[in-house]
Every structure is written in C-alpha cells, then in structure tokens.
Amino acid sequence: MSIAARTPHTGGTRTAGCLRLLTFPFRTAHRLFRPNRYDRIRDPAITAAQVARTAVGGVATVWLIRSYPLQESAADVAKDQVLELLLSAGVLIVAGPVAVACFVLSARPPARAVYVRRLSGPAGAFAALLGSAAALWFLLLGGAAQVTETAGGVPFVGVLASMAGVVFGVPFIAAAVVLSVHYSFRVGDVCEVLPPLLSPVLVWSLFVFQALDGSPVAAPQAVEALFATGPPLSVSLLSAWELQRLRTRHRLTIRRALGRSSALAS
C-alpha cells in the first residue's frame, strides 16, 4: 500500500468543518424560523408561485434602479432597504400575535385546542428573535465587563464571550429577520390559511411607509405608481389565489379551519 493511500485526506474535512462553522448561524436560524409542522400542507405550486413573484420583484427593482437616476446615494438606498426589512419585522411582531390570537379565539372546539398546541412554533420564533437581539444589544453596550465580573474577574473570558456572541449573533439576527418576514414568524405552523391572510396586511403597511418616504429614483409618475402599487397588489392576488388553491386542492377553507363547517383539517 502506498503512503498516499495510508495517509488520511484531512483537507476536505477541514474545509467542510469550516463551512459548517461559518454557516452555523444561518442553519440555526433556518431551523428556528422555517415552518416545520410534520403534517403541514406542502403545495409545490404555491411555493413556486411565491418564488417566482419574489424573483420578478427583484429583477424589476434592479431594472428600475439601473434605468433611472437615483435621487439619493447608493448607501442611502441600501439603508432604506434594511429599514424596510426591519419595519416589516416590526409590523409582523405587532400584527402576527394579534392575527393568531383572533384566529385561535374564533375557532370552535376542538379546533381551538389543536391550534393552541401548535403555538409553540411561532412563540419560539418570536422568543428567538427578541432574545437574540436583546443579548446582542447587551454585549454591544458593555456586557463583556459584566461577563468578566461573573467569571471571577478573568478579562479574556468576557472578551471571548462578547466576540463569540457578536460573531454568531450578527449573522443569526440578519438571517432571522429575513426568514421571519418570509415565513411570517411561522404562523403557517398554526394553520395554512394564516400566511395568505397576514401577507397583505404586511405589504399594504409597507405601501403606506413607501408612499410617505418617496421614490429613490427620478422616474416618471406612471412608473413610480406601478412600482409602488405592484408589490401589494401582486401579493394580495397571490394570497387570494393561495386561499383558492387551499380550498380547491386541499379542501381547506377559513370556515373549515375555524371548525365552523362539517370537517376540520387538523
């Protein structure tokens, strides 16, 4: 047997280990914020339509920015996008619990008990995002000193803890915000009709914000109006189609989900 055959190949293992370490915050966020109820309805057509709508919106936005002069710097445009994402998460933090509470309270027994048992997914997503944001804020505001004091005054313990918290927390929170908006804080784990009911509330709330903020490009009014109303209208139409498909393909309606018809899809 040759030396090369006897020598273990560790380069690929090290690379895979580094990649797993770098992607750990994103994989953790994906596990926490993606709906994963085992018996949830998974319709490939609905998923494909959502992906297509997102792709078309992204391409249209790039075209708009490249076709017309910016009215503000590229950095300001990027800040507006981040602010819009944070605003989306903020709207869902308020509207999500209200919508879920109204839905669960409106359900009749035994449907109500089914939905109460399913609240752990959305509640865990809320707790993970708010808790991680609070922990990162604590570390950035001098939490290392308190960690050092707790560790018996050993300085490097607080520094290492703060570094580890920031290195993990920043990408985790970034991924968590994106995924929480995309999956509406896992309300689909409670019932499949909730995401298409909640999505229009989110996009029309953002429409008001964008109308007050103004367009970032110097485009004709007709183009600005199209790009301002296109996202909320397309999401609303997609949500209506999704509810229609849940009714026709999976026999799940809002009334049936609330236990107000002869059958309940649990």
Rank of each mutant, 00 (worst) to 15 (best):
M1D: 09
A4D: 09
R6N: 04
P8C: 08
T10R: 14
G11M: 10
G12N: 07
R14Y: 09
T15S: 09
T15W: 11
T15V: 14
C18Q: 10
R20I: 14
T23M: 15
T23R: 07
R31I: 02
F33S: 02
R34E: 12
R34H: 12
P35M: 13
R40D: 06
P44H: 07
T47P: 02
A48E: 10
A49D: 10
A52F: 13
A52R: 11
A55V: 10
A55T: 07
A60G: 01
W63P: 00
Y68C: 01
Q71H: 02
S73D: 13
S73M: 07
S73I: 05
S73T: 14
D76S: 14
D76C: 08
V77F: 02
K79I: 08
V82H: 03
V82P: 05
E84R: 13
E84V: 08
L85I: 04
L86H: 04
L87C: 12
V91A: 01
V91Q: 04
V91G: 02
A95W: 15
V98W: 15
A99C: 14
V100I: 15
C102K: 11
V104I: 12
P110N: 11
R112S: 05
Y115I: 10
R117E: 04
G121Y: 14
A123P: 01
F126R: 04
F126K: 05
A127H: 06
L129V: 12
L130W: 08
S132P: 02
A133M: 13
L139Q: 12
L139M: 15
L140K: 07
L141I: 01
A145S: 13
V147H: 13
A151R: 05
G153P: 02
G153C: 01
L160I: 15
S162L: 14
G165A: 14
V166S: 01
V166W: 03
V166R: 01
F168D: 08
P171M: 15
F172L: 11
F172E: 07
I173G: 06
A174T: 08
V177R: 04
L179D: 07
V181Q: 03
Y183T: 06
G188W: 05
D189V: 09
D189R: 10
C191I: 03
P196S: 05
L197T: 01
L197N: 02
L197I: 05
S199T: 07
V201M: 08
L202V: 08
W204I: 01
W204Y: 06
W204C: 00
S205D: 02
L206P: 00
L206Y: 01
F207N: 02
V208P: 00
V208N: 00
Q210P: 00
A211H: 01
G214L: 03
Q221S: 13
Q221F: 14
Q221E: 10
A222H: 09
E224K: 12
L226K: 00
T229I: 06
G230F: 00
P232R: 00
L233T: 03
L233Y: 01
S234A: 13
V235R: 04
L237P: 02
L238G: 06
A240I: 15
W241T: 04
W241C: 04
Q244N: 15
L246V: 03
R249A: 14
H250P: 12
R251M: 08
R251E: 15
L252A: 09
T253S: 15
I254V: 15
G259F: 12
R260W: 06
A263R: 13
A263Y: 12
S266V: 11
